[in-house]
Design a protein around this nucleic acid. Structure first.
Length: 575
RNA sequence: CGGGGCGUGGCGCAGCAUGGUUUAGCGCGCUUGCCUUGGGAGCAAGAGGUCGCUGGUUCAAAUCCAGUCGCCCCGACCA
């Protein structure tokens, strides 16, 4: 039996654990270790064991099917890539330490690929000459490596990971949008079929520009990302992207009545506010940033944070960081913690909240001094923009609703690249008029392993995993309660073989273990459907069928078991 | 990279402040036998650790000191 298709637990390599391993913090990680899905080799580097691999493959196949349905074609690109391509795209320099670099014996520099824009663009530019060959969507399912700052949560954020990455090449913007929408559609199908509760949210497009980027977020308390969504309309975005509705200015106070007050040693907003006996929202924070376009100042309400992504995009900045103390003193004349807009000569950008503030407090640009009763007429800013980090309760930019916040796990990201890579790497084609044009690209990623982990994170109970039929390692487990009871084994074997013959992904727990051990393992691994065959039931010719999601089994005649299982599978497997 | 913590049989831990009664211990797991079989049983007998590594202090180091490696957790990246 060994070496063949092993669907007998007695012969399967499935090291389950009764106790929680110390290294695991989040639930999915713990369960994946306990259920024998994965084992760690090194920080952020994991082996997928047979059970886990079965789930991983099922996700992969769902991805393949849905990608293929959209006309995308699978290929497989190298993980080791020469430096030259990355220099050409400009990313050898920009990618940073996440890009693992090394030299081969000939002293040539290479990297372990974290993503494949360079290679796929190089491939396509060599082979595609004509608009007739476009559009083209290529994808692969392949191991990537990113030397993450801090790997954690097991396979959720690992350094080596399996990713589906796809790339579209179109002749024009309209085509690129079509490809993008096709991928968006495919992703919806993929995550739906994986049984995930998810949401596609708008994401930042950053330096690449363009207006299209969505992240597919699996909703989970332990998610690392924050999703802002409207309680009224369909608007949803990640935190760095989330916009806030503009509010009309209702203040007419022209100012001119401000005065300085002593605020000895009060640098933080909270300290100043409590010292003056006012709410932090009555203050305006003046933050100085060092940028590639010089030092700038940003004004935001005292109780809010500046969204640096918004700021970066607004001013098309390459580089943005908070100014150091020396710069602050030089620009404002006062120390850190006492900066204010009054009298400053650097460019000031204000959050729109400031428009609705009156008689507020700002720093006095000198030690231990703040200014109170300040109004908009008392200083000048370039303009007012949406610059703050969105919060629960903020107004939706699209309707009259308000923002909610939830946590999510990013399992997919689709991105309109435009001509960033086709320009830097000169990927062109001849259009209908014989003119040379740059291809318009998109890229589309799915973390395959992360998707498995996210599904577990979202589907579990105190006993273990509760994966859906579509991605559980097996669909059905036949569990003979006592393997030394001949009739039990006979009936179990008949049902097991009968289900296999019907194309049901079935496993037989034929281990000579005590019942408790087998039931616990079955629950831990989260077999969607369990058929328990025991001496007791058989006395009446019955076996027990139980869905993992139900608490009580259904007792049914032994000869009807296969038929009933087929009904369940038909109902829940779907697709 | 900064801050915190941990490295002791396969897993989870105790022992370490106050070096020597410890032949380094416990639970789970593992092996063998008996027994048991509808929710991680019971009894008995076993196997398995140069206490992360290197160096130092000492008559004596799991225990003290230094260095080093690995891992985990909290903050800056991304699928």
């Amino acid at each position: 039996m060994r070496g063949g298709y092993t669907m007998l637990f007695s012969q399967m390599f499935m090291p389950t654990m009764k106790e929680d391993p110390k290294e695991a913090e989040v639930l999915s990680h713990r369960l994946m270790l306990r259920a024998g899905f994965i084992r760690k080799l090194a920080s952020g580097i994991y082996t997928w064991l047979p059970l886990g691999l079965r789930s991983l493959r099922k996700v992969e196949n769902i991805v393949r099917e849905e990608m293929n349905k959209k006309g995308a074609q699978e290929l497989l690109m190298p993980a080791v890539q020469p430096k030259e391509l990355w220099v050409e795209s400009g990313r050898w320099e920009f990618y940073g330490k996440e890009l693992l670099r090394f030299k081969d014996r000939g002293d040539h520099e290479h990297c372990l690929a974290p993503t494949h824009e360079e290679v796929v663009t190089d491939l396509v530019r060599r082979e595609v000459r004509s608009y007739r060959e476009l559009p083209l969507i290529l994808y692969q399912i392949q191991t990537k490596f990113r030397d993450e700052i801090r790997p954690r949560f097991g396979v959720m954020r690992s350094r080596e990971f399996i990713m589906k990455d796809g790339y579209s090449f179109d002749a024009d913007e309209a085509g690129a949008e079509k490809s993008y929408m096709a991928m968006h559609d495919a992703y919806e199908q993929i995550f739906r079929r994986c049984g995930l509760r998810f949401r596609a949210v708008e994401a930042d497009t950053g330096q690449i520009g363009g207006s299209f980027s969505h992240e597919f977020m699996v909703l989970a308390e332990t998610g690392e990302d924050i999703i802002i969504s409207c309680n009224n309309c369909g608007y949803a975005a990640n935190l760095e992207r989330a916009e806030v509705r503009a509010v009309a200015r209702s203040i007419t106070n022209k100012g001119g009545s401000y005065r300085k007050v002593e605020t000895p040693g009060k640098k933080k907003v909270e300290d100043v506010a409590s010292f003056l006996g006012i709410e932090p929202s009555k203050l305006i924070k003046t933050l100085l940033y060092a940028t590639d376009k010089g030092t700038i100042g940003v004004l935001v309400a005292g109780d809010r944070e500046v969204n640096e992504t918004k700021l970066k995009n607004l001013l098309s900045l390459e580089f943005l960081t908070l100014a150091d103390e020396a710069t602050i003193e030089q620009v404002t004349g006062g120390p850190l913690g006492f900066s204010g807009p009054v009298g400053l000569s650097i460019p000031l950008y204000a959050d729109r909240d400031v428009l609705c503030m009156e008689d507020f407090v700002v720093g006095g640009n000198q030690r231990d001094v703040h200014i109170i009763d300040v109004n908009l007429g008392d200083f000048s800013v370039r303009d007012f923009y949406d610059l703050k980090v969105a919060c629960v309760g903020d107004g939706c930019p699209r309707c009259d609703g308000f923002h909610n916040a939830t946590r999510g796990i990013e399992v997919g990201h689709i991105f309109k690249l435009g001509t960033k890579y086709s320009k830097s790497m000169n990927a062109t084609f001849l259009d209908q008029e014989g003119k040379e044009k740059h291809m318009v690209m998109g890229c589309y990623g799915i973390g395959i392993g992360r998707t498995v982990a996210a599904a577990i994170e979202q589907n579990n109970d105190q006993f273990g995993m509760m994966l859906p039929f579509s991605i559980a390692p097996f669909e059905v487990e036949v569990l003979p309660v006592n393997t030394s009871h001949a009739e039990s084994m006979e009936v179990a074997d008949t049902i097991y073989k009968g289900l296999l013959a019907k194309g049901i992904d079935t496993v037989l727990d034929d281990r000579n273990e005590r019942p408790g051990v087998k039931f616990k393992d079955c629950d831990l691994i989260g077999m969607p459907l369990r058929v328990a065959v025991g001496e007791r039931g058989l006395k009446e010719g019955m076996v027990d069928i139980k869905l993992r999601t139900e608490t009580e089994p259904v007792r049914i005649g032994r000869d009807e078991a296969i038929g009933r299982v087929l009904e369940y599978v038909a109902k829940f497997r779907g697709f």
